[in-house]
Simulated assay, not measured.
Amino acid sequence: MTSDTQQPKTDGDLFAFLDSLGIAHATKTHQPVFTVAESVALRDEIPGGHTKNLFLKDKKDNYFLLTVEENASVDLKTIHTVIGAASRVSFGKPEKLMEYLGVIPGAVTAFGVINDTDRNVKLILDEDLMHHDIINAHPLRNDATTSIAAGDLLRFIEATGHEPLVLKVTS
């Protein structure tokens, strides 16, 4: 059987994995948020860079997760030339999001690569986001925010077997 019969990992699994890597993290629970606009109210409570995530695919069914700063603007007409896609990109379907990253729309996060054991998704972190000392992302659910040092986010991604690409993807 392939890995798609496994249950997605939980936030508890994520935190245990971070702990096993010696990575410091702090999580604050809050009302579920589905959009950047809804999450803006949390800014005063949670310092650091907050993320916006785009789950994209090209015509050859290559999948990409772009993690950018929440207010960043991404040009979907040209981003394929920056991220190495085979064609223009479109948004990936919710079924693939659950299959590969183990999350629902509204809870998309760089932490989702913990569920992508077959490495189906290429993770791209925006260079501007990585200038923050602390990065904030959903811990596989959208009613909490986990804060982690930028360098530790890179270590986490590498520990999942993914190669984090830090590229200038925003305008």
Rank of each mutant, 00 (worst) to 15 (best):
N120G: 08
D61N: 12
R88I: 14
Q7K: 15
G102W: 00
A159F: 10
V68T: 05
N53S: 07
I46H: 06
I46Q: 01
S3L: 14
D152Y: 05
N71S: 09
T2D: 14
D116R: 01
V82S: 13
L66N: 09
L42K: 10
V89I: 15
Y100K: 08
D152L: 03
E158D: 04
H30A: 01
M98N: 06
S90E: 15
G92P: 06
N115G: 02
H162R: 10
G48V: 02
L129F: 12
D126L: 02
I135A: 02
I134E: 15
A137E: 03
G92T: 03
F156G: 10
L97D: 01
L42E: 13
R155T: 12
F55G: 01
I83Y: 04
T5F: 14
A86R: 09
D75K: 14
I104Q: 13
T146V: 01
E69M: 07
D4F: 10
D143K: 05
I114K: 01
F91T: 08
A110P: 15
S90G: 12
H132R: 13
V89N: 06
F17E: 04
E127P: 07
G161Y: 02
A149W: 14
E99F: 09
D128M: 14
D128G: 07
F91P: 07
K122F: 00
A41E: 10
H50S: 11
G22P: 08
V103P: 03
Q6H: 10
K28A: 08
E45P: 11
A16D: 12
N53V: 00
T5S: 15
G102H: 02
V169S: 05
F156V: 06
E45L: 07
L101T: 11
D13T: 07
T29H: 04
G12H: 12
V121W: 05
K93G: 15
K96Y: 14
V108Y: 03
L165N: 11
L14H: 05
T170Y: 09
L153F: 06
P164R: 00
V113H: 01
F34M: 11
N136R: 08
L14V: 03
F17K: 09
T81P: 12
L76I: 10
D44A: 09
N115D: 03
V169M: 00
K60G: 06
F17T: 11
V103D: 00
V68K: 07
T35I: 01
S147H: 14
H50L: 08
T109P: 07
R119V: 13
A149K: 13
